[in-house]
Design a protein around this nucleic acid. Sequence first.
DNA 1: TCATTAATCAAATGGTGATTAGATTATAGA
DNA 2: TCTATAATCTAATCACCATTTGATTAATGA
Lengths: 226, 226
Amino acid sequence: MTNVLKGRFRVARKPADQSVNRDDIILAAAEVLRRNGYEAATMKDIAAAVNLTAASLYHHFRNKDTLLLAVLEAGLEAIISLMQPITGSRCSSADKLRRMIRAHIVAVTDNTAVGAAMVFEIRALMNVKAPAKTASADDRQAYAEFRARRDAFFARRDQFESLFRQVVREGIESGEFRPVDDGIYTRTLLGAQNWVGVWYRPDGHLSGEAIAGRMAEILLEGIVKS
Amino acid sequence: MTNVLKGRFRVARKPADQSVNRDDIILAAAEVLRRNGYEAATMKDIAAAVNLTAASLYHHFRNKDTLLLAVLEAGLEAIISLMQPITGSRCSSADKLRRMIRAHIVAVTDNTAVGAAMVFEIRALMNVKAPAKTASADDRQAYAEFRARRDAFFARRDQFESLFRQVVREGIESGEFRPVDDGIYTRTLLGAQNWVGVWYRPDGHLSGEAIAGRMAEILLEGIVKS
DNA sequence: TCATTAATCAAATGGTGATTAGATTATAGA
DNA sequence: TCTATAATCTAATCACCATTTGATTAATGA
């Protein structure tokens, strides 16, 4: 019920005459990104979503690239924080995996904007280009910092994926799971789960919870010994 | 072994002093799209990939949107044509489904560019905006045609997805498959299969065939009665 | 109340990129 | 060889957009 992706931010719309903060912008940006994609989304679009002008965004983020990175970082950390209590728990691999799958899917359906960004905007993040050699020292410094943060983001994303892989391996080693290719199985999971963000509609006939339950069951059948 | 997506086009690079054709451009455009995404890909980039200037592309395609549509249409038709012999065959639902899954995955790994476009550029296709009211009658006519073709594309894509869904339903009705939610199961398949285009690397340690085989096995376990 | 800093805005700036206009060259038939 | 058409090019055009500059306003601590 509680939306974890959103949960990290102030949920209530603040009075129009108050200033917005970083997190408001991140959330609004995710929404604009989902609709238009990073390249097509303009700073003006994003600003308008929080009743600001484009120029004002630069008070909160150095540039468009950094804003994108902030959106992705927030989304990733939110999801990882959901996984940790599960991977740390003391239950069967099948139970762990089931709970992880469900948590991921529910997170995606609860905040489709951030979920979609994590799928569709990674490429834009990778393609951010270095400033021209003629750029100011300031800009080059900023780019160096950006790159460091981006690298950290990718490392973190790999960690996230290996949380799933770890559980799969454990289950195979303990004999609880069939001896499938753990890399392939993990990517099967992630693909199916990420894809939910593409087709899920909040007004559809199945809730995020319902989808999560059914999909987890199907995916588990693919690996649990019967 | 034969690459079906590419198979529709002339494979061999033509001598540099010959003129390019529509299909050469479509294939090159898919590659540029995979790297940069539609919005970031410039007509100049695409033209350069076939040794032309941007202006020359307009001899072959009315505009950038139409080129995008052409890429997606070609990819979709290629994949659908792979499915038809399978769905029409007389074998068990499990065999049909296995062959369809494998065919789809191999098609994606054989031409990752087109496969990725089918996943990542649909949004760009949806977001193509109408010409201004001040636009020429010619432009408005062109837009009307574009919309019709685009609608047809989406209908065709839905047909493609229902090929899978149909087989799943058949198998459930015949009792060959467990009675899972066919909508969820189908989307689980498609998500996992599409996702292969995101992580597959031709120089990785598993061939497209190998991936297809393993993933099909895992996905079938999720539904076949044991 | 005053000074400082945080947030915001309006109005440039500088580039880029899709598209068009107006040639030019190549080729295929007559 | 001559002509029409296809394919290509160079050089505009015209918008749009990220980012900067230089104010202006609001809130906070002294």
